[in-house]
Design a protein around this nucleic acid. Structure first.
Lengths: 249, 249
DNA sequence: GATTGATACCAGAATAATACCAGTTGTGTC
DNA sequence: GACACAACTGGTATTATTCTGGTATCAATC
């Protein structure tokens, strides 16, 4: 997109005065919108901070803050001495399915993770059923604790076929980043939600009392061609977590 | 939402003098209502305390107390030096949530219903909040047991505004049939799902043991013009019921 | 004690303007 | 093409002001 167009688009976004957002937030939201709507194309370069600052009538500090936030979220790529580039991939994998981290952040809390184990191992009976494999076929299992404001909130156990993930060591932070690099990013998911009661091990990991209700989410992720990639079970402390969904007729 | 709109809406809420609620509670309830009805959108920023105090004619202590209470409940996010933000429970848009009867039938079981009560009555505190009515305004409450193959599986409690349903006797089988006849068929719903533990009364009705996990679904149904019609809470026996939904990119 | 008001002060965020440093890109010359 | 230099870029820092939430105090009323 030509600079002229981007800048006037952003100028409109920032000029909106009927709401209480800080200026950097208006610019951030405007940029994010421009990227999502492909007014700012993937791989394109942004006007420089100084140009945006001058053209939008904002201080460079304000412009930088907006850009930094989007870089943090993966929308933009920052390189010292070089113009900022629109990332060629956007984080979202499945529409309407936000990541745990996004979800926790949206509740005003800080997300965190603690790895419990990453191994190649034999599948459990439910993993055999879910992934449709033989009981003697090994898989990669990733188990971690999910935190919100440093409080354990969920135990997540992901089982991934070795076809798509040969080694557990490939995953440092995000499983989906690795799957994407390997052209195995899921396009469809089935989620099953139910309630349960905390087990002694879970009670210890989640630091909650016996009898605490558990919100259990099983997720099966599929490629476009229908092959299953991953089976993940997440067990949330039911006293601390809920799901909100929207439905329209 | 524009500050002007928020402030005049809240001014109306606070001006209600027909009840005994303290001022901070009126403001708190008004804010909660505005958030639930999405007049105050998730992720939006509030006017500052000082602006609200001046515009609503309340002391800042009063405004702060209302906001603090909502922040404590997770509706608002407080950040020192920065305006208060409406928490965004990231809402997932899901397809495939079907009616109870359809769902049970698709599992090869026969759905059934047993009415526990149909009455015009005073609202509970959560119904007051959910429907945005005054505590002295009566509503229609319909309580029934949901069966699968004659086994009790859920307790459903629906509260409907008398604007849309003047009498409980109008409902013989399906609430939605009646609402449709009265041109009040909901077009949109928000559902909140969480886990809990069965109460003694529920254990008796659902014929399940103490400690059984409960899958709780709260549903708020809206007309096309945004007005709320109904607030329903359904408590499912977690050992017998789960939800399966599909999502795609 | 709870509610509510008025006022004062503190700490942090948002924003602006300016200066300087380090890295990249563009341009001109050989 | 290689190289030097200028211009541009992002990165960091400083000073300053204003607005924000956070805390405290005194006071009146129910």
């Amino acid at each position: 997109m030509a600079r002229f167009d981007v800048v006037s688009y952003l100028r409109e976004q920032v000029a909106q005065s009927q709401d209480e957002r800080p200026l950097y937030r208006k610019l951030q939201d405007g940029l994010e919108q421009a990227i999502n709507d492909e007014l700012l194309e993937r791989g394109a370069f942004m006007p420089s901070e100084r140009v945006l600052s001058a053209e939008l009538g904002l201080s460079r500090v304000t412009v930088r803050k907006a850009i930094d936030e989007l870089a943090e979220k993966g929308y933009l790529i920052r390189r010292h001495g070089s113009k900022t580039e629109v990332a060629s991939r956007v984080e979202k994998t499945l529409s309407g399915l936000s990541s745990f981290s996004e979800d926790i952040r949206s509740r005003g809390m800080e997300p965190g993770t603690r790895w419990l184990s990453k191994e190649i191992t034999m599948p459990s009976p439910s993993e055999v059923m879910a992934l449709g494999i033989s009981p003697s076929e090994q898989l990669v299992r990733l188990e971690r604790l999910r935190l919100a404001d440093s409080t354990p909130i969920a135990i997540e156990r992901a089982a991934v076929l070795r076809t798509f993930l040969p080694s557990a060591d490939l995953v440092s932070d995000s499983l989906y980043d690795v799957l994407e690099q390997r052209n195995a990013l899921p396009k469809r998911a089935l989620q099953r939600m139910r309630a349960g009661v905390v087990s002694p091990r879970e009670a210890e990991l989640l630091q909650c009392p016996d009898g605490t209700p558990i919100f259990i989410v099983e997720r099966r992720c599929f490629l476009e061609d229908g092959r299953i990639v991953e089976f993940t079970e997440t067990r949330y402390n039911g006293d601390r977590y809920d799901f909100v969904v929207e439905q329209s007729a």
